[in-house]
Design a protein around this nucleic acid. Structure first.
Length: 700
RNA sequence: GGACGCUUAGCUCAGUGGUAGAGCAGGAUGUUUACACCAUCAAGGUCGGGGGUUCGAAUCCCUCAGCGUCCACCA
């Protein structure tokens, strides 16, 4: 087939992907023999995408960056493994599915757990298949024979083994502590799964016996029977710790106890507060320290319990005003501050207010796990790109709190039932936080893909993922990886930023500015999308994705197509000669390209793909096409046999090298063009081969 | 309340001690062995403000301002 017309990505992409896949070279064990010259490995694990929808622009970026790394290293002769995977994504997927149910007028709370699980499983498996196809569309040269899913039997087994080991080492415990409770989703959430939202409320100053206390949440105050002040607060020196005081409260007379505690801020309000240990983390801490009673006031559905007397059964929002009315009628309201700004926690998925609740759950002790992780990072054994993430992750690790592992949802890996966990609570569902399984991804995958994979590929080389999930995922992989294997899970962490719309706005369905990468691919070709995603994209920085920009790279692809067409047209009669008489200028051009390649190689090794891409783009268009090809035209037209041949040699040499350098970035078009030069390619192996496994540096 | 990042051409961003760079957009002209998804040419910035170090700073230090992000148990 001839190179003709304009470049049409649609005509070739699927065909080329199939060619790669059929070659078997995605699998490091099946790489051509030349690769044995360098048995060094290079390993990346694909961050398992959530199997609950379509790939978005962020995924496309992941695939692009990782495929660039993978193809580059593979071409350098490394035994390269890029291991693909998908995540069942526990809570995330359950939320997506619940929304779907809602639209259909159904509710998960009316479904039997087994039935719900079965439905979500089917939904997830469908999405999984769909996403796999989309990953292929983006050109990912990953080893599908090693693909893993977080619900694979052997992965689950590994997760259980880790859990048992943690239990044995006394790092996992069952605790009754304050957790973040999402009333809508009926599950607990980790701190990372909540958002801090500033809100303006009323701040009430209430008379509490001889004191005035402040609260923004009067509805929680029914059971408050401890009044707390700072031990050094002179205003309250006359009150003794443990002193009983009788006073009139919302529903009648009570006896309160004075508690002295340093956690109190003397500057805030009156310097006195009452505590609600069941529904506030600070209060819980004070109650634990002084061994005080804790009483539940609000149930798990956000309704007041019988302790609220006649208010029992009311929802919080409804009850608040009525309670204030009652307090006012009793003369217990001193004053009301109208515009009180404070921060409340919300569920990161549904934005509803988090109700802190005491709930018995599994917790993981993090401090002992964090210590070796901190050491590994501080010593430089794990490097971060960009470097400032080192500070960010260290700060988090050094202040880490225990991790609540249980979720009260069906969709996930069930926590193995044990007598202590299920005592008195038959049928309560408990599954792992999805990050507990993905946190074990590096060793869970490589230990179960057979052969000597763990030995060969662990620790992996690069963990490339979104900066957003550094705590959720990266930190946990480091901790759990070191814990379970004694070795760090990866040497370099490359963190990319968000993909934003053309105006630099965060993409969201409600704003209607979501760019679907598959549509872009359809319109401009995958290579153009990939260039659009990598050019100007520095690690950690967010990227504005402009369709115009992608169009520009589609044009570039066409430029490559046409330049190649030109070279092909003019070299069909090329006969490789033993010696070629290059002119001084031609020698200079080849030298320049060699120098450029060296420069680009260095940039690639430094993970500066944005820069490497720009260099080769600029070179190809403005040096090769605009200068070298233009200047070559006369020699091709009227040059003697010798000068024509030298020119042909030079053009082929430069085109071949350029295609190689461009391949990691634009794999489809480069591979396609490569095959049109089979007969001319005396420079290569002289037989039909894939550009994908051409060596970056030709072996001398 | 802490921490981190950003501020360079109209837009998106590189450059991190030695005479300001790219892509996109915009302007003029043009068609010659590929390409109008093209070529040629021109235009465009006192590198957020101020101060300091240096022979020399966009680049290092201090300070101010604006924007953004993350972390944090102020009732």
């Amino acid at each position: 087939m001839e190179l003709e017309g304009q470049y049409d990505a649609k005509k070739i992409e699927d065909k080329i992907y199939k060619l790669w896949e059929d070659s078997g070279f995605f699998n490091p064990d099946k790489l051509p023999i030349t690769y044995n010259l360098k048995p060094k490995t290079f390993t990346i694990l694909m961050p398992p995408a959530n199997a609950n929808g379509n790939l978005h622009a962020g995924h496309a970026l992941v695939i692009t960056i990782e495929d660039i790394m993978t193809r580059y290293k593979r071409m350098q002769g490394f035994k390269t493994l890029w291991l693909p995977g998908l995540d069942h994504a526990g809570f995330e997927t359950q939320v997506v599915y619940e929304k779907k149910l809602e639209k259909e007028g159904k509710s998960r709370f009316k479904m039997a757990p087994e039935e719900l699980y079965k439905e979500i499983l089917q939904f997830t498996l469908e999405n999984k298949k769909n996403i796999e196809g989309q990953i292929k569309k983006l050109g990912a040269s990953c080893d599908w024979s090693r693909e893993k899913f977080t619900l694979d039997e052997d992965i689950v087994k590994t997760v259980y083994e880790t859990f048992e080991k943690l239990k044995k080492d006394d790092l996992v415990y069952r605790g009754r502590k304050i957790i973040n409770w999402c009333v809508k989703h009926q599950t607990s959430l980790s701190d990372l799964e909540t958002l801090d939202v500033e809100q303006t409320d009323k701040l009430y100053y209430l008379k509490y016996g001889p004191f005035v206390i402040t609260t923004a949440r009067p509805e929680t105050k029914f059971g408050d029977k401890y009044v707390v002040m700072h031990p050094k607060d002179k205003r309250y020196a006359k009150y003794q710790d443990g002193q009983k005081i009788s006073l009139e409260w919302i529903n009648g007379p009570i006896e309160a106890t004075v508690i002295k505690n340093e956690a109190i801020d003397m500057e805030f309000g009156t310097g006195v507060m009452t505590i609600t240990p069941w529904h506030d983390a600070v209060d819980f801490g004070i109650a634990e320290k002084h061994k005080l009673d804790k009483e539940q006031v609000i149930d798990f559905y956000g309704k007041l319990l019988p302790i609220a007397g006649e208010f029992a059964g009311m929802k919080i929002a409804e009850a608040r005003a009525k309670i204030i009315e009652r307090l006012q009628s009793k003369g217990l309201v001193e004053k009301v501050e109208e515009n009180y700004k404070h921060v409340v926690k919300t569920c990161y998925k549904c934005n509803s207010l988090i109700e802190p609740q005491i709930k018995e759950q599994w917790f993981l002790k993090m401090k002992p796990l964090a210590v070796p992780a901190i050491k590994a990072i501080e010593s430089g054994k794990i490097k971060f790109i960009p470097a400032h993430y080192k500070k960010i992750i260290l700060h988090w690790l050094k202040n880490i709190l225990d991790w609540p592992l249980s979720r009260q949802i069906v969709w996930g890996i069930p926590i193995p039932a044990s007598a202590e966990a299920t005592a008195g609570k038959p049928g309560e569902i408990e599954t792992f936080d999805t990050w507990f399984s993905s946190g074990q991804w590096p060793f869970a995958t490589l230990r179960t893909t057979g052969k000597d994979d763990f030995k060969t590929f662990y620790p992996t080389d690069v963990m490339e993922t979104a900066g957003e999930i550094i705590f959720f995922w990266v930190a946990r992989m480091i901790m759990l990886g070191i814990y379970a294997t004694g070795k760090i899970p990866f040497k370099t962490v490359y963190l990319h930023g968000l993909v934003l719309d053309a105006k630099g706005q965060k993409m969201s369905k409600s704003k209607g500015n979501v760019i679907n990468p598959l549509e872009i691919t359809d319109k401009y070709g995958t290579d153009a999308l990939r260039m659009g995603l990598i050019m100007g994209n520095t690690p950690g920085q967010s990227l504005a994705l402009d369709e115009n920009k992608i169009k520009g790279y589609r044009n570039f692809a066409n430029k490559m197509w046409n330049a190649s067409k030109f070279v092909l047209m003019n070299t069909t009669d090329y006969k490789p000669a033993k010696t070629v008489k290059l002119s001084a200028t031609q020698k200079k051009y080849i030298k320049e390209l060699t120098a450029l390649k060296k420069e680009i190689t260095k940039l690639m090794d430094e993970f500066k793909f944005y820069y490497a891409a720009e260099k080769i783009y600029h070179y190809f268009w403005h040096t090769f096409c605009d200068k070298i090809i233009e200047e070559a035209k006369p020699a091709l037209a009227q040059g003697s046999g010798e000068s024509r041949q030298a020119t042909q040699y030079m053009l082929l040499e430069i085109l071949t090298e350029s295609l190689k350098i461009l391949h990691p970035f634009m794999p489809f078009i480069t591979e396609e063009i490569w095959h049109h030069f089979d007969s001319q390619r005396s420079l290569g192996a002289g037989k039909k081969s894939l550009l994908m496994v051409e060596l970056w540096n030709t072996i001398a």
